[in-house]
Simulated scan of single mutants.
Amino acid sequence: MAQVSQTSHIGEHKENKNEVRNVTIILSVLTIVELILGYWMYVAGLQGFLQIFIKGVIIILMLAKAFYIVTYFMHLGHEIKNLIMTIVVPLALFIWFIIAFLYDGNSYKNLRNQYDRHHYEESNKTYNTPQNDEKAHGQSDKAVEKGKKPQEH
């Protein structure tokens, strides 16, 4: 009888080892795909819809990695449903709060710009900055008056 329980224990250990190896391979592949997409987006200088689409794909891959990490390495994949809900529901509420606060802050800013003209004028105020053909750092006013271009440093 002792022989049977030892054999089942060894088989269970090999199963767990294979499961951890498989999850590690999946996480590695997802990370490599994320890096390739990010590097491609950076090198190609993508703009517009394609850039937003790739960023969305990267976020989805990150969420998949988070799921695997929580499920296997935090051992929540084998837990009962109520314990999982005690973690997932507060996390979902936290994410919802962040989105709600960001939306509310943007709404406040827009309303303040609409009804408080002083705030609108201050937030859209432009300041005079030297242009390329104006006085450069360390150049005298006489050189600018004579029409000379500033010297490059």
Rank of each mutant, 00 (worst) to 15 (best):
V4E: 09
Q6P: 00
T7M: 05
G11C: 07
H13K: 13
K14Y: 10
N18W: 02
R21H: 06
S28R: 03
L35R: 10
I36L: 14
Y39C: 10
W40N: 12
M41H: 01
Y42W: 07
Q47A: 01
Q47K: 03
F49G: 02
Q51T: 00
Q51S: 04
I52V: 07
K55H: 00
G56S: 05
I58L: 05
M62V: 12
M62K: 10
M62T: 09
A64I: 03
A66V: 07
A66K: 03
F67M: 04
F67V: 03
F67D: 05
T71K: 09
M74K: 05
G77N: 03
H78N: 10
K81H: 12
L83C: 01
M85F: 07
V88A: 08
V88T: 09
V89K: 14
P90F: 03
L91W: 02
F97H: 09
Y103L: 14
D104I: 13
Y108W: 13
D116S: 07
R117H: 11
Y120L: 15
S123T: 15
T126W: 11
P130W: 06
Q131I: 07
Q131P: 00
N132I: 08
N132S: 13
N132Q: 10
E134D: 14
K135M: 15
D141L: 10
V144P: 00
K148E: 14
K149G: 11
K149A: 09
P150Q: 08
